[in-house]
Simulated scan of single mutants.
Amino acid sequence: MLHLLVADGNERSGRATHESVCGKTSAETYAGVLQHLAPDAVCHLAAPADADAVLPRALTACDALVLTGSTLHVQDGGPAVTRQCDLVRAALAAGLPVFGSCWGVQVAATIAGGRAARNPRGPEYGLARAISRTPAGADHPLLAGRPPAWDAPAIHDDAVIDPPPGSTVLAGNDRLDVQAIEIRVGDGVFWGTQYHPELDLDEVAAMLRLSAAGVVEAGLCPDEAALHAYADALRDLHRDPEGRPDLAWRLGVTAEVLVPERRRREIGNFLDRLVRVRRRAA
Rank of each mutant, 00 (worst) to 15 (best):
H36E: 12
A38C: 11
A38K: 00
T25L: 02
A38F: 00
D50L: 10
L59Q: 03
C43D: 09
A47Y: 15
S20R: 13
A51M: 02
L34T: 12
V33I: 10
G23V: 01
A49K: 03
A47L: 09
D40L: 01
R57N: 11
A31E: 05
Y30F: 15
P48V: 13
S20Y: 08
T29Y: 03
H44R: 13
V42K: 14
H44G: 12
A53W: 02
A27S: 11
P48N: 07
V21A: 04
A51Y: 01
S20T: 10
R57V: 15
A51D: 14
T29R: 14
E19L: 10
A49E: 08
A31V: 09
R57E: 14
H44Y: 15
Y30S: 01
D50V: 00
V33M: 05
Q35C: 12
T29V: 13
H36K: 05
S26H: 07
E28P: 00
E19M: 04
D50A: 12
A27D: 06
K24E: 11
G32Q: 06
A47K: 00
C22T: 09
A27R: 00
L55D: 13
A49P: 09
H36A: 15
L59D: 03
A41N: 05
G32V: 08
A49G: 11
L55E: 11
G23H: 00
L59Y: 01
A53C: 15
A41S: 12
L45N: 13
C43M: 07
Y30A: 04
P56M: 09
D50M: 04
V42I: 14
V33G: 07
A27C: 05
S26Y: 06
P39W: 01
E19A: 14
A51I: 04
P39I: 03
P39K: 02
A38Y: 01
C22E: 06
A51R: 10
A41D: 08
A51L: 08
A58H: 08
E19Y: 03
